[in-house]
């Protein structure tokens, strides 16, 4: 009896705090959505603040989807994201797995080499020269290969692999399974949560890609989504240089943000069910 009473209090606390967190996140988001579908004059009339729009217009979305480069940029972004994330996951997994074996000779050297790159980089110009000499300029590969592996994600994945029970590997080795097969058939299925997490990090990274695009790509047809969105957002931060300069309204800015982030936001709920506590490991062991 006492137990369930405690449980109820505990649950209530959990729900209240989570509810507050949700509220803190949703109000500003609601504001972004509302502004994006309200005529800008209306926004200003309300002192710039609107939570529930009274007058709805999708004209900002229509303009962005028909008159800007967003549709073609969208295709580029999807392409980079899909190819890029696949490349990332394969390379990161191949690196993280051997490094998770604590008895691998030279392991510390490799790990230190990875940590080192988290802190030191050669800078823009030499990296540009590498990309240029590999002939990657003005291709989608210039937005994929220079960041093919994030040191951070290797370390995360490695740390997860280390947490897998040792018996798994021993029994597999006794079966005479080769390392590649162990990685593919035993480690990978058991590491779905981390693969998805790291995959999500990479995916979001590619989706938000603009830095490399700005440097390595001059062909406008290869510009990804965020470059176009950034163009819209940055204009509001620049001083007036030309009378013709059309400043995008806040409505337009918010709409561009919505278009650019909605697809990645939608992905997340689909991944969530794979984070359920102990599901996979339990089923194998049990």
């Amino acid at each position: 009896m006492v137990r369930s009473w405690d449980d109820k209090i505990f649950n209530t606390i959990v729900y209240v705090i989570l509810g507050l967190c949700g509220l803190a996140a949703i109000l500003p988001i609601l504001y972004v959505v509302s502004v994006s579908i309200t005529p800008f004059g209306e926004v200003l009339r309300n002192g710039g603040f609107i939570l529930f729009p009274r007058e709805i217009t999708f004209s900002a979305y229509r303009t962005l989807l028909t008159e800007s480069n967003i549709p073609s940029a969208f295709r580029v972004t999807v392409l980079i994201t899909v190819i890029g994330t696949a490349v990332n996951i394969v390379l990161t997994g191949l690196m993280a797995y051997p490094l998770s074996r604590k008895n691998l000779p030279g392991r510390n050297v490799f790990l230190l080499m990875i940590v080192f790159t988290l802190l030191f980089s050669g800078g823009l110009i030499p990296t540009y020269l590498v990309v240029k000499s590999l002939g990657l300029l003005d291709s989608i590969w210039a937005m994929i290969l220079p960041n093919a592996i994030w040191s951070f994600n290797v370390l995360i994945m490695k740390s997860f692999f280390e947490g897998l029970p040792e018996e798994l590997f021993e029994s597999a080795r006794m079966d005479g399974a080769k390392e590649f097969r162990i990685l593919l058939q035993i480690v990978a299925p058991l590491s779905i949560p981390v693969l998805l997490t790291v995959g999500l990090f990479y995916l979001v990274g590619h989706w938000n890609e603009f830095f490399q695009a700005i440097f390595y790509v001059t062909d406008r047809t290869l510009f990804p989504l965020q470059v176009v969105v950034r163009e819209i957002l940055m204009q509001s931060q620049q001083p007036l240089e030309n009378a013709e300069n059309m400043m995008p309204t806040q409505t337009m800015q918010m709409a561009s943000v919505m278009i650019a982030s909605l697809p990645v936001i939608i992905v997340y709920p689909f991944l969530q069910k794979h984070f359920t506590k102990g599901m996979l490991l339990g089923s194998i062991k049990g």
């Binding site: 997860f160 949560p193 998805l196 794979h274 984070f275 359920t276 102990g278 599901m279 490991l281």
Partner: peptide, 8 residues
């Protein structure tokens, strides 16, 4: 993700 790896 880390919690998902805890043995139930």
């Amino acid at each position: 993700a880390a919690m998902a790896g805890i043995d139930p």
